[in-house]
Amino acid sequence: MRLSPLSTLGRTTMTRTLLDNVNYDVLNTIALKKMAAEKAIADASGVSLGQVATALDDLESQGLVVTIGTQSLPTDDAVPALVATAATRYANLRIDPAVLEMATKFEQVNGQFLKAISSWQQVDVAGRKITNDHSDSEYDSKVLDRLDKLVSRLVQLIAVLSHQDGRFDRYAVRFIRATDLVLAGDLAYVSSPTIESVHNIWFEFHEDLLRTLGQERGE
């Protein structure tokens, strides 16, 4: 269904040429973040800044990325290119029983995580959800403890993927950095959408996992 007018902005003829690993990692990071500057792309992907700049030029010339100011955004052709490449790059991973078991465990942990984040944002008072003003330190501590346990479980699950592709190690590094900041008292790193918060990293990992496995996200 497309009800808005088609735009030609950033579009070229659809290409099904598979992406090399660096271009995949850079484009995948942009697609996961939806909008990212070079430094953030390098940090999240583990690709050097120099390689990121080269990859962005390449991806833009292929019509897979468009730049607005300092930010790179994926075009409509980006995800199809990633999906096609992932099918080949991760063909063996997709039939690995350990990975499939990991993915099943992730779904359980993910459901608990989304509830925990909602509990961080809102407090149930007599059946009415109101914004958590973080004045109840005991309540907050319980939610943070829950989130910390869930992140620890996820980091263990990520190790299964890292055996197959070392790029997934970046998620563990980023989670540890974010949780350390939370434990140090910077509570914005729980769920702020504009920084490397636990929720942002978690969400990116979920999207990445689905693409890696060739699965669709459910509602």
Binding site: L3, S7, G10, R11, V66, I68, L73
Partner: peptide
């Protein structure tokens, strides 16, 4: 109300 069906729609709107 504006329907956004794809990343391109978002890029177009932001632009």
């Amino acid at each position: 109300v504006k329907y956004l069906g794809s990343p391109q729609d978002v890029i177009q709107l932001l632009s």
